[in-house]
Structure formats: C-alpha cells, structure tokens
Design a protein around this nucleic acid. Structure first.
Lengths: 331, 331
DNA sequence: TTGTACGCGTTATCAA
DNA sequence: TTGATAACGCGTACAA
C-alpha cells in the first residue's frame, strides 16, 4: 500500500484533515473520544507523518549536523558520541556527515566540492544549525563566510578557520601541550622531536606550546629528523605529537634504526592503545570530549533559538587529565 | 535580511517564479540571457533553495542514513568512511546517526526510544533509505518489522536481526573465524580461550566457526575462565575474540596472574593497534569494509529505485586478509 | 520562451 | 469541538 497521509485517515474517519492533524499531536482541544478513534485508525494504517512537510510548515527541524573530515582520531569519535548524546537530551537529533571521505586518491578537488554541498544542504532548511570540525588550513574559510554572514547557526569545534568571527569551541591546546611537555621532561627526556605537521589551528597551538616549554627549559628539540639534529638530543628522546595512529608509530617504525641506542618517551593527545613499547613511558593529555561537545551543542542551540549568545566568542576547554598510559604487561 | 526565496528573485527580475525555478536549475528551455540574469541576481542575494520544499515536491531526498550503535570498533569507522565515500559517488548523501549514544548509564530504555525515533524519522520522508547496523540481539526486530512491511528501503550491515526477511550484508564470519583459529594453531597454540560474548549474529557466527575448528583439530578450549579449565589448555594459549579494545586487553589485564607461566597468542578481527605484547604473536582477520559498504549502498539504492533486487537476500563478503600484526620494536 | 495553476503533506489561523 | 483555507517553498504539466 502507498504512503498513508492525513487525508486518508480523515476520509476513513469522516472528519476534516485539520482535526486529524490535531488529534495525532494530542491536541486536547479535540474531543477525547474522537482523538482516540483517530489515533487508533492511524496506528492500524501504519501512518507516519511526513517530516519534510511538517518541518516545511513549521520552519524548523530540531536537527543539528556535525560535519567533520573523518573519524580517524579518537577525539572525533568521542565528540560524535557525546554530541549525539547531549543533543538528544536537548530534544534535538544530531546527524554526522563526513566531508573528507573522498580522499581516497581518486579525485582531487571533489572532496572540497562535497564539503561545500554538505554545508549548503544544511543551510537549505535541512538542519537548524551545524557544528563544523574543519581540518585543512583555511581552505574552507570562503565556504563558511557566506553562511556566517547570513547568520546561519554555526559553531566550530576542535579547530577553527582563521579570521572568521564566529563561535568556536576548542581545547586549551597551548597550555595543554606545555604541561604534556613538562611531564616528558620530568620523565627524563634530554631532547625532543616534535611531530605537529597538520595545518590546523589546534596542532599549531600545540606546537607553539611545546616549543615554548622546551625553550623555557632549555631543552634541545627538532621538528625535522636529521642525523646532526639527532646528535644534540641526548640519550633520552621525547617524541611529542598529536596522535598515536598517524604520527608516532609510523614515524618510529620508519626511523627505527636511528633510535637503537636511545631511550624513547612518547607524549600524545587523547589516548594510547596497546603497549607503550618501544617507549619507556607514554604520557597522554586527554581532551575533555564531553565538555567540548556540550559547549558546542549549547552554543548552536543558543544561536538557533536566537538567545543572546554569551559574549565569549571562543571557548577553551581545559585538558581533562594528564596520565601515563596503562600497560598490560603480565609481569 | 530574511531568507531569500524564488518569489523574491522573481519580483526583482520581473519574471514568474516558475521561470526563476527553471533558470536556477539550468533548464535550457529558459532563454540563455534571462537565465544568466536570474542566476546572477540569485547569487548576489545569496539565494539558497529550500531543500525541504524541493524534496517535498520531488518526493525524494537522495539521502541515505547509516544508523549504527556506536563508533567504538574500527570496523564501524571504516564502514562509515567507505559508505560515505561510495554514496557520494552515486550522487547520494550519507548521514550517520548513532543510536546507542545514550548508554552512559543515566537513563535505561531511553536509548531504545532514541533508536526508534531515528528509524521513524528516516522513514518519514527525510531519507530515501537506511542502512542499519543493529547490535543488541533481537531487541529491535519489532521496530524494524513495520518498516520492512511497508517496503521502506532498508539494508542490514555487519549484523542482522534474526528472522527478518530483508537484505543483509555481512562478512564471512564463520569461515573467517575458522581460518583465524587455524593460524593461531599453526602459531603453536595448545589451547584457546574464546571471548565472543556479544549477543549478535556476527559474534555468534564467529564463535561457532572458532568452536568448530578447534573441535575438528581436537584442541581444548574454554569460554569461561576457571582455574581447572586453564590447566587443560597447555602452555601456549590462544585468546580469540572480536576486538582488541573491548575484550582482549582488559581481559588480560584483569587475569594477568593466571598467565604468568604461559605463552599467549591473540586472534582478533580487523586490527591491532600498538605492540602485540603481552602476546607472542597477534593474528588479525581483516574485514573488507570497503566491499561491505559498497554492497550495502548498492542494495539500498536498488531498493530505492525499485530495481528488482538481486535474488540473494544475504551477501557474505569474504575476509580481506589474514595477517600478523605489525610490531614497532626497534631491535 | 514564459506564465498559470496545481500538487507535495503539514501546520496554523480563522470562522462556524 | 470541528471545518475551511491559507501558508510553507518549490516542481511541473499544461497553456499561452
């Protein structure tokens, strides 16, 4: 059978469509008897209201999109999880869209196009607001400018494009990186290798924090691995980076021969899965994904409901904790 | 300024709204000159077509939802990534919704409610079809039954509820688990511990495959760890499970004292991050996420476009590869 | 080549 | 308490 609509129910019940509409939304203005009757026949027919029509008429969707480049990093997965949860609590539905999913090496440029399409779609009535996790430098700034100018509710999360006057939620990356670095030094590091090559504001802030701390403590470090540079770093080298998966382990696997006679310490953000080997210790700066997600959702909703957004444009969430990674050794 | 609509542009250009509508979709029937003029003024006004209205009028959204419980497992992330990519290639947009995100321990039952809501929303015109990764046994069967009966395009991925006559795409879990087990035995295992406690069809198939192989080879195994059971397993124990994160490492961490004098071998699906320690070797059965995603998308689209779906109800994708996990040891 | 008029499925504002 | 009717913004036969 085809899709049941209000009209069908109305005809069966010999009532007007508007009465049916009210009854199905439990409007107490409809007489309790007819209301029940309508609801029963609706259920028996397997009626489902058409959300497109409903949202079109209502002017809002109670839907927020979380748009991010990928789910590779642990923090991304956690943000999705918490944002979805918290949005749900606020009676919004959160949808996730990936915009970097085209980067499989087939079609360059298509990814950006896809990104643009997603943002457009969101702003075209399908979502009440969006939370965007940008990734590739300022490539996307011009895409977002329009939306912001038209006051479409938008909040940046984790990273934020430079020079856009809009809400943003991120971690205290700079001071977090300083603290992480401090731990590595307390752990005995005599020098450091910095792996923060991503061209985004979060990685840059971390890089700067790390540099600042190392300089202040007078500890040598390099950002590119050269034989000469390595000599200055001493016997206990801290490798400090954003994440395990993309940076440290591949890096160590590739340059293993250089570290033969060295002791290694790793410093990373968010998590370390598995054994810390080949490091002596792994220090982890854990971002507060729950708080970040909560702030982001709150601020989009504030914009959606046109509540006067808090003065503060940029929210920096403190690092949740600094810890040494667990080891599963049996001895 | 408020939202621009076709009417606004029509008035400015002194044309009918329908002409504007055609021009903005590059309909060649509109005279090239006026088409350009219309497009220019539209752009200058920052016009965005309302997708709700467009989809309502058009009857379709070119949107597919991928609904899954969480993103904890690597396979989930890969499925999202590939599905998003492939859907995009087919000119569909893929949205991801999590339905288990409420399981933070606050409100029991709310998760199921949320799940229902998401499925309903999808079927209410917002999506042309859905791909569902179910997780908790057959809890959700009744939710899905309605949708299937009403011929709403739906494909199950990874797992599938029992007894529902609908399309499903999954891995060759049973034979995959057999092969994985074989590898563990070739690696020297004298006994095995099986950790497949999840109440879903994928884990069950794997459990059965593992059991079958072990029985055939006459190798002792346990599914619950007891002191007596442990004695029979010999000195080299294979721990075989679905994933690293949720099962093996916590299990070993908890029961470490029992394994003091044993050699361990791990057998898992999808991936192993970090060092294999405390195991001698880790064998990994890697699922073919790309193929799974592709099949799933293809089959939803087939249903959406009412093409006669292939006779085969259930697609079982072969395991991509069996490998030993990489090690990053520097010596 | 452009305009008219109706449909998409709901909600909301009247009037009855 | 219910019914008629106008939005919501756009697509599209059909007519001009």
């Amino acid at each position: 059978m085809a899709k049941i609509k209000l009209q069908d129910i109305a005809e069966i019940c010999r009532l007007d469509i508007s009465t049916v509409s009210r009854a199905l939304r439990d409007d107490p203005v409809v007489k309790s008897g007819t209301r029940k009757r309508i609801q029963k026949t609706a259920a028996s027919l397997g009626y489902r209201p058409n959300l497109l029509a409903r949202n079109l008429a209502g002017g809002r969707t109670r839907t927020i999109w979380l748009i991010l480049p990928s789910l590779d990093a642990t923090i991304d997965q956690q943000l999705v999880r918490h944002a979805s949860h918290y949005a749900n609590q606020q009676d919004y539905t959160l949808f996730v869209a990936l915009h970097d999913s085209d980067n499989f090496g087939d079609l360059v440029g298509r990814s950006c196009e896809h990104y643009r399409q997603i943002l457009e779609s969101a702003a075209q009535g399908t979502a009440d607001g969006v939370i965007v996790v940008p990734r590739r430098g300022a490539d996307d700034a011009y895409l977002l400018k329009d939306l912001i100018n038209q006051e479409f509710p938008i909040v940046f999360l984790d990273n934020h494009p430079d020079g856009l006057a809009s809400s943003a939620v991120t971690s205290e990356n700079e001071s977090g990186a300083r603290e992480l670095t401090r731990r590595c030094l307390e752990g005995g590091a005599t020098g450091a290798i910095l792996l923060f090559s991503e061209p985004n504001t979060a990685a840059q802030a971390r890089l700067e924090g790390t540099r600042a701390e190392l300089r202040q403590c007078g500890v040598p470090f390099v950002e590119q691995l050269t034989p000469e540079g390595l000599e200055n770093l001493g016997s206990c080298i801290a490798i400090i980076a954003s994440s395990q998966t993309h940076h440290i382990l591949p890096f160590v696997a590739k340059n293993g021969q250089h570290f033969k006679d060295k002791t290694l310490i790793f410093g990373v953000f968010d998590d370390w899965v598995g054994e810390p080997a080949p490091a002596k210790t792994v220090y982890v700066a854990v971002q507060d994904a729950a708080a970040m997600a909560k702030f982001a959702i709150d601020r989009v909703i504030a914009q959606i409901e046109k509540r006067p957004d808090s003065v503060q444009r940029m929210v920096r969430v403190p690092i949740l904790e600094f810890k040494e990674s667990m080891t599963y050794r049996t001895q």
